[in-house]
Design a protein around this nucleic acid. Sequence first.
DNA 1: TAGATTGTTAATCGATTAACAATC
DNA 2: TAGATTGTTAATCGATTAACAATC
Lengths: 213, 213
Amino acid sequence: MAYSEKAIPEVAQRRLPRYYRYISELKSKGVSRISSAALSREMNVTASQIRQDFNYFGGFGQQGYGYNVESLYEEIGHILGLDKKDSMIILGAGNLGRALANHAAFARRGFELRAVFDSDPNKIGKRVNKVEVLDIAKLGEYLSDNKIDIAILAVPKGVVPEIYEVLKENGVKGILNFAYMEIESDPNLPIENVHISDSLMMLSYRIKQKGIE
Amino acid sequence: MAYSEKAIPEVAQRRLPRYYRYISELKSKGVSRISSAALSREMNVTASQIRQDFNYFGGFGQQGYGYNVESLYEEIGHILGLDKKDSMIILGAGNLGRALANHAAFARRGFELRAVFDSDPNKIGKRVNKVEVLDIAKLGEYLSDNKIDIAILAVPKGVVPEIYEVLKENGVKGILNFAYMEIESDPNLPIENVHISDSLMMLSYRIKQKGIE
DNA sequence: TAGATTGTTAATCGATTAACAATC
DNA sequence: TAGATTGTTAATCGATTAACAATC
């Protein structure tokens, strides 16, 4: 986006994957066009917000017609970088690491798992969803030989800082962090923190609120 | 909260688990008091926002002193309902379901796993993290015999609607949904959707943006 | 063309921040 | 007491919604 354009609000950016999800659903149902009004009903947001949001990213619609589902799908996919086939490794072959390695949705969205790393000698050498479990001690070495875009952290929080340094020094471009420790996002190394426990606590909170209000 | 009090903004409510996380960290480090200014530096938010937020929930501080870490921890834990020991079941004994069943952070926060459900005869009867895997066909029956607060959905999206109905009809109080299908939150049955793929897409987007801006 | 629906501006609403009086 | 720091109000900033002209 050219520097002269208006900055896109962070909140609007974070709505993109949700739009993508709904549009990909429409596409697979064979719907070929949709208006902001119709999409607003499905997604439970205002039509106005949908039009504003799509406009931030370039206005993919047509007056009197609406939005073409196929091209919307491609445009948003492109904006999300899903046409790029990022290479990916998973750190930690524990329960969560293995579950993520087997997560079909990742491959479907064009993310390509290359290896899993662990420190446990019983796991090293085994395979998880067709890729090999490598020794985490050799992570730096591996990264200098292999161009990896994304690292998924599924390790105990104690080892996070150390692994983070290795990832950072070896050109990994982004981190998806499941460890129970927030890593601050350096402007040059974006990090998305996924805090499953936070969601559970939020749920607990909302259950409790029901009775009160 | 009395009806006369000002409504607490949704965004502030969603910040609670993050506060809880940082405060619990401070507590375990042995820090006994903290000012909004000091916490603001750690958490990367403004001190003003911290004071506003804590005030929405009752203002746990003391002028000239700051906040007592121990009592802050208890207060927020109480607001989140963590002093309540919710009972919990997991639907789906696949990779993700098993990973969640073994997730130590849940038990640590007072959530008590009671059973796991699956439809696969090879899994039924086995144990996952000390609880039994039960036949999902008997879910309704189980729920009428056992008071369950929270259900975690880790099943393929095709079976979500059907399971949702059973949960709803049998008094489950909240759902944590990992399926790749958004369930709309009924006012009487709060749902937190966790979309791991969305986080990965967002990461991909942010990696892509780096080069552009 | 008439009807539909976007793109976009302006108005509203809500959240964040600044400021400072209250008070420990 | 003097200093520190909250609680809280008011000011600012930003996001959402409404409205409608543009246009397919």
